[in-house]
Amino acid sequence: MTPADLSLTVLHAVRRAVDDGALRVDVPPTVKVERARPGGVGDYASNVALTLARSAGRAALDVAGILEERLRDTPGLQAVAITGPGFLNFTLRPDADAGGELVRAVREAGGAYGSGTALAGLTVRFADLTESRALLVTETVVRLLRSQGADAAFRRDEGMRDEGTQGEGTQGEGRGEPVVTPSLRQPPTPHPHERIHVHPGAYDPRTLGVDAARWALLRAAPQDRPLDGPPLLVQHERNSLFRVRYAHSRVRRLLVNAAQLGFEPAYETPVHAPELLGVLGDHPVALLTAARHRAPDRVARHLEAIADALLAFQHTVLPLGDEKPSAAHRSRLALAEAAGTVLAGGLSVLGISAPERI
């Protein structure tokens, strides 16, 4: 992990703390890290907690503790320590390659990368709904909550089980209303019924198609007006849905082109792609935060960030001219493939398809 990589890693931790509601500050454009000075520990240090403390209205040690929690399991970091009034100190793992660990994690989990058990033991019941956008948002939130281990359902589904949590058994591969089947469990103990406050909006798959109709209602924050539908049908970089789906299709094309050149993805050597590695590493936290805040728009915005980083990176993947495929190309292709897998999984959470070609 280079100092630039470490700086981005700490910046991502600040963003996660703000998204989680643990810190109320403006996210700085950059975070400075430098070699640890006498009195510090480890390889590098940052005073970011001290610089954020005043605007956060908290002690620098408290801010440092919040950030340390979000950094302690970062691939490539052996240890994170707090010294003095609130300096963060970092010890790098020798010969650590965060990219290799991340690619392996995505390959092992597939489209379920980012799922976890952080909300295990939480039971959430949502009230009956009739308005189309409220129904769509709540159905997606239920899927998000279940992906993090929570027991979540609509009120009408109590004693029933939505088998579409992982994208199976739902109408249109998770893109319609949940399909429920009788549960063999005893009816759960009654819980207060939540209601997500949503700005009304019409679900219009006949005009827009399922994918654009869902993106229009889910990409905007629930309390905001839905996106205008017709622009989502235009294949242009200003169209956020197009960028995300196009990025996924580019990965599929890169894999085809690489096969024609005689090589396959295999992560063999470190890849310098801090932006792409950063947003991919943030994906589990993005899903968890979206579930906690009942905000599918956070997933959509995170997918946009992955797509933008991937589209900036994809030009480096294939050999140019007479260049022969090397370990670097195979490793870059493996990272691109992992990004495509994460994009497809994130779109599936939103009930949106990930096309092979556009």
Rank of each mutant, 00 (worst) to 15 (best):
G229Q: 09
Q171W: 11
A60P: 01
R72S: 14
G174P: 01
A290K: 01
E194F: 07
A344L: 01
L227S: 06
H236P: 00
V48P: 01
L288S: 07
A127P: 00
P200R: 13
P38W: 13
R125L: 05
P85Y: 11
R332M: 12
I66N: 07
V180G: 05
L310W: 03
D157I: 01
R107D: 15
I66D: 11
V256I: 12
V124F: 05
E163P: 00
A64R: 03
E337F: 01
S115A: 15
D5E: 15
S353L: 06
A328E: 14
A17W: 03
P178E: 12
T269P: 00
I196C: 07
A81F: 00
G167T: 03
R250C: 03
A216D: 05
L276Y: 09
Q223E: 15
L88M: 04
W215Q: 10
L122Y: 06
E356N: 06
L208K: 03
V279A: 07
A81K: 09
A295G: 04
S249L: 02
T140R: 03
D151V: 03
N89A: 10
L320N: 11
R294I: 01
A344W: 01
T207A: 15
D43L: 04
A45P: 00
T181Y: 06
E131Q: 13
S348N: 11
V48Q: 10
E101R: 07
D62M: 04
R185A: 15
A118K: 01
L280R: 02
R332N: 11
R146V: 09
D73W: 02
A259D: 12
L350E: 10
V210P: 00
D157F: 05
A59M: 06
V349Y: 04
T2E: 15
L217A: 10
D211P: 00
L227G: 06
P187L: 15
R185I: 01
S353H: 09
G40L: 08
A22D: 13
T189N: 10
L50Y: 05
A312N: 11
L71G: 10
V234F: 11
E304I: 02
R15G: 12
V244G: 07
N257M: 12
V41C: 11
I306V: 14
L8M: 07
V251T: 10
E264R: 09
H236Q: 13
G110H: 06
Q148R: 12
T140E: 07
A273V: 02
N47G: 14
R72L: 12
G110Q: 09
D224M: 08
H12W: 08
G201T: 04
E108R: 14
L92Y: 08
D308V: 09
H329N: 15
L318C: 08
A273E: 10
G176K: 03
L11R: 14
Q148L: 06
L261K: 11
A79E: 15
P28Y: 15
E275W: 03
A259Y: 01
V48S: 09
L144H: 04
T83N: 05
P226T: 13
A354N: 06
A258E: 07
A354D: 08
V349N: 10
E139N: 14
L77E: 08
